[in-house]
């Protein structure tokens, strides 16, 4: 791959890159996170061979849980072949030599940035999130000393005031991603910058969810079957984004769609953000309204070519 990756081939580094001492430290933090759902456990995040903010937290968590028999899926923005997903998957292929996949159902460990797969996850899967700013209160109160106190006292008044001001001003809550949730009726938590469309998926999810923030040095977790409630008000209940059209390529409804601009004359289409989901549906013969459109077909074809491995 690149120069750094070539070094791994020389056998200089341990399985999954991290040394055992570091893995133990991360593993202990993960256990604490599981025992205190939604609480951000401080951990001595290491410098990784990719920049802070590019998934170092997720990578460290994945490296600490990954075993030689695991099958890893790596997604970014819902897709397996966006640049950083390719780069991070390559990192684990080189350093751990584990099997990787694009198929959600085949993976035992899924590392993600900004999306949760459309397919329902199972008890045998672990979902690892890359988190930029783990503190849901950070943009309301920049000081760690203060936000830590608020969590300790379960004092989330500030967050409710902010959401209420949104309603007063806009008639609805103007938060569309990284939408705060309350875990197990105790901790307010940032579900990472996934669109709020994905929030219902993390409630009572069968899979274990692990969240890693490398630069901010925090790990948190949601065990399987845990109550996760998106913050709202009785008269303004939480609701997710709705798309008025199905996926232009596979016809899927009730999935998160990305907008693709086809030309400079206002031509656009909406397609599944989860590329594996879309491909699987099309392979099963589902088609969307634009599947036959030449401009759309060109993009699809290009994609097919690039994902062929």
């Amino acid at each position: 791959m690149n120069d750094t990756a070539q070094i791994y081939d020389q056998g200089e580094y341990n399985f999954a890159y991290l040394d055992e001492q570091t893995k133990r430290m991360i593993r202990r933090a993960i256990l604490k996170g599981i025992a205190i759902p939604g609480y951000q456990v401080p951990f001595a995040s290491r410098e990784m061979p990719m920049p802070y903010g590019w998934g170092t937290g997720g990578v460290q968590v994945t490296a600490a849980v990954l075993g030689k028999d695991d099958c890893l899926k790596m997604i970014d923005q819902g897709s397996d072949d966006t640049t950083n997903a390719v780069s991070l998957r390559g990192f684990f292929e080189k350093t751990a030599g584990v099997r990787t996949t694009y198929e959600t159902s085949e993976a035992t460990v899924i590392q993600t940035r900004h999306r949760i797969p459309e397919k329902t996850l199972t008890e045998d899967q672990i979902l690892v999130f890359q988190v930029p700013i783990p503190e849901p209160l950070r943009f309301l109160e920049p000081r760690e000393t203060e936000t830590r106190k608020m969590h300790a006292l379960e004092d989330y008044g500030l967050m409710h005031v902010k959401l209420y001001e949104d309603i007063a001003k806009n008639g609805h809550i103007a938060t569309t991603y990284a939408y705060p949730v309350k875990v197990n009726d105790r901790y307010v938590m940032d579900p990472s910058p996934t669109p709020k469309f994905d929030n219902p998926k993390i409630d009572e999810m069968a899979a274990l969810q692990l969240y890693g923030a490398g630069r901010e040095k925090r790990i948190y977790a949601i065990p399987p079957y845990t109550k996760v409630k998106s913050l709202d008000f009785e008269d303004y209940p939480f609701e997710v984004q709705k798309f008025d059209k199905p996926c232009a390529l596979c016809g899927a409804e009730n999935v998160y769609l990305d907008e693709v601009i086809l030309d400079d004359r206002g031509g656009r289409m909406f397609v599944c953000s989860d590329s594996d989901h879309c491909e699987e549906r099309r392979a099963q013969g589902h088609t969307g309204p634009m599947a036959a459109n030449p401009a759309a077909a060109q993009i699809t074809e290009k994609n097919q070519r690039e994902t062929t491995r």
């Binding site: 920049p51 802070y52 590019w54 923005q77 900004h114 999306r115 569309t176 469309f197 630069r215 990305d258």
Partner: peptide, 16 residues
């Protein structure tokens, strides 16, 4: 790292 991570794709959040 964090400043430059803005170069990474954010189209899911941007779509929202």
């Amino acid at each position: 790292g964090f400043v430059e991570h803005l170069k990474l794709p954010h189209y899911v959040d941007f779509q929202a």
